[in-house]
């Protein structure tokens, strides 16, 4: 891990910074000469690998592994797209109008439109702009990612109290972090939590987009990605 770690005294956030996966590189798909299809194929391959990494990452979120296997599955099945969306959005911060899926896979509005990703572009840009305006820190990004998973409103939890404790631990960490910042921005933690509805909405749009791509049958999707999409519909 080559990420610089800022110590801020908060154990949970330090752990989250440490376990934040290094960004993946896209593997350009050379099976087609159609640039738009190539972008979609490359993107689907990248997102499948992101999912694999995310499942490994989740195990290292403080409190996650203490949950039952059934509840771990339930949280991931409902929250995975929100976590993926936050990864893309955090990489896109500071990149103007492009969506940065990976350092070597950046798509602008025209490219997204040509690839059939207009809706996804609009939704992701709205969230990116919001976080850009808030000047989100890396600590806040990693905490929001973990919170999105913890707060994914999974149904049929085995132990809702344990999931509540998991959420409380992350919430406490965020509050402690914000209080430790100078100057203290009043209501900062609340402002961050108030972005979660837009994150949920954006993730739902993303799920719709990939379900549509799958139904159109132009883009073969990996087994894990399909399995996770299936859990969302």
């Amino acid at each position: 891990d080559t990420h610089p770690i800022k110590t801020n005294g908060n154990k949970v956030i330090s752990q989250l910074l440490l376990t934040e996966p290094a960004p993946l590189c896209a593997t350009p798909d050379n099976s087609t000469n159609d640039d738009n299809l190539k972008a979609l194929l490359t993107l689907c391959d990248l997102l499948n690998r992101e999912l694999l990494v995310m499942i490994g990452w989740a195990k290292h979120i403080p409190g996650f592994s203490a949950l039952s296997l059934v509840d771990q599955m339930a949280l991931l099945q409902s929250g995975w797209m929100e976590t993926l969306v936050l990864s893309v959005v955090s990489q896109s911060l500071g990149y103007g109008e492009e969506l940065v899926f990976a350092g070597n896979l950046r798509l602008d509005q025209a490219q997204c439109r040509a690839s059939g990703l207009s809706d996804l572009y609009t939704a992701l840009r709205q969230l990116t702009t919001k976080y850009q305006q808030m000047n989100l820190s890396q600590e806040e990004v990693v905490t929001l990612k973990a919170m999105a998973l913890a707060n994914s409103d999974a149904e049929n939890l085995e132990n809702a109290e344990a999931v509540q404790r998991f959420q409380d631990g992350l919430h406490e960490a965020l509050q402690e972090y914000e209080i430790s910042q100078q100057p203290v921005e009043l209501h900062r933690a609340g402002k961050l939590l108030m972005t979660l509805p837009l994150l949920r909405q954006t993730a739902n749009r993303a799920v719709d987009t990939f379900c549509r791509l799958h139904l159109e049958g132009r883009v073969p999707m990996h087994k894990l990605f399909l399995e996770m999409l299936d859990a969302k519909i």
Binding site: R49, G56, L69, M73, Q77, E227, D230
Partner: peptide, 20 residues
Amino acid sequence: KEKHKILHRLLQNSTSPVEL
């Protein structure tokens, strides 16, 4: 669970996931 067997297996594995 049967329907979501890859996720199930990945969560059970303590080692890094290998199956795509």
